[in-house]
Amino acid sequence: MLTWKLPRILNVHQVPKVFHEDSIICGYRSPSSSATACVLSLFQMTNETLNIWTHLIPTWYFLWRILALLSSPGSLHDPFLWPLLVYLMSCCIYPLMSTCAHTFSVMSTQARHICFFLDYGALSLYSLGSAIAYSAYVFPDRWVNSTFHLWFVSWAVCNTVISTALSCYSRLGIPVLHYNQHQIERFPEQNGPRLSKVLRITAFAYPYLFDSIPLFYRLFFCSGNDCAHNATLTMHIWHSIFAFLTGFLFATHLPERLAPGRFDYVGHSHQLFHVFGIMGTYFQMEALIMDMNQREKWLLDHSFMPSLSGTLGAWCSAMLISLLLIAAFSWAMYWKPKEPEKRKTF
């Protein structure tokens, strides 16, 4: 009879510092786990188990939503639906990459960094998918076809590249050889965790705030008949609330910071961060679909038709650049600059 032995659970003093989580004491997996052990850990309670399942299950939900859209007649041939398709692809990819990152990040130190590089890249692509959908469906009437609207997606592509680069840099930095000590400084996250955290928060917050400019204007500042006020505003507000809570939890590490060790397995900030993030994405998706349906006639008459290059083309270009950046940062972990030759003295 075939039996599986579940991996041993460790405490914070038994794993290297790079694997430590703020105010989490117990529930760590071995930092040299095999791929099989990583998969088996999904079925035992660790401090990562709920992090994994809170994104694995929603991945299937978003995949079902995109398959339902693709199964509708003519969806692939209707340019008006292309921004929604790109957005839904982003919604499938980012929780899937997060699931893989949290599952396999304990195979080694290098694997941990590469896994989260991919996770950060997926989050950046999700931000771009949101921008593409916002450009097509969310802009207030008075901003449609403005210069800002015409350049919105192009700017969002640049933000995606910046976000991926900055978030990866916050984790690894650039290897620097200290000639006087013959050492290579590799992981600034360990040497300067606060700076690393600030850089990472900036990398995630900046694209979200940029994407939300037309939405925030429509919600809080626009008045009159050309503001696209409709029933979707309530859904947009719920999305904004969950987005704020997501960022707040990521930045503060509450509630575990108030009681270290009490929330190691259930209820710590990263689990809540995942739940609120997915809820925010759900409300965002529903609001986008409602805006698309309710504003379709007006947008088709007054706005430019989405193009393949401005939707899937922009998204794929940003994905390619992000992958190249991730490959460069991953390679940097293994790069060892040559030490300078000592000058001969006679």
Rank of each mutant, 00 (worst) to 15 (best):
200 R>H: 08
40 L>C: 10
239 H>F: 07
87 Y>R: 01
295 R>A: 01
98 S>G: 15
149 H>W: 12
102 H>Q: 05
13 H>R: 07
46 T>G: 06
187 F>P: 03
298 W>P: 08
77 H>M: 07
341 E>Q: 08
175 P>Y: 01
319 M>C: 13
323 L>M: 13
289 I>R: 14
111 A>K: 03
217 Y>H: 14
186 R>N: 07
96 L>R: 05
37 A>R: 03
61 Y>V: 15
78 D>W: 00
68 A>K: 14
246 T>M: 09
5 K>T: 15
82 W>V: 06
113 H>Y: 11
334 Y>L: 13
41 S>W: 00
318 A>P: 15
259 A>Q: 12
247 G>N: 07
141 D>C: 03
318 A>C: 09
342 K>Q: 15
155 W>R: 03
94 Y>K: 02
143 W>C: 10
220 F>H: 13
283 F>G: 02
97 M>D: 04
123 L>R: 11
116 F>W: 05
281 T>L: 09
52 I>C: 14
270 H>G: 07
131 A>N: 07
177 L>E: 12
155 W>P: 07
157 V>P: 08
333 M>S: 11
44 Q>S: 09
191 N>G: 14
260 P>F: 11
85 L>T: 09
272 L>T: 01
212 S>P: 00
9 I>K: 01
33 S>E: 06
97 M>P: 00
149 H>V: 12
155 W>V: 15
280 G>S: 13
340 P>T: 10
320 L>P: 02
295 R>S: 06
219 L>W: 05
40 L>Q: 14
275 V>Y: 01
68 A>M: 06
176 V>E: 11
14 Q>T: 11
189 E>C: 04
5 K>G: 05
213 I>C: 08
218 R>D: 11
273 F>G: 07
49 T>E: 06
299 L>G: 04
240 S>D: 08
122 A>Y: 03
287 A>E: 10
175 P>G: 07
45 M>Y: 06
342 K>D: 15
159 N>P: 00
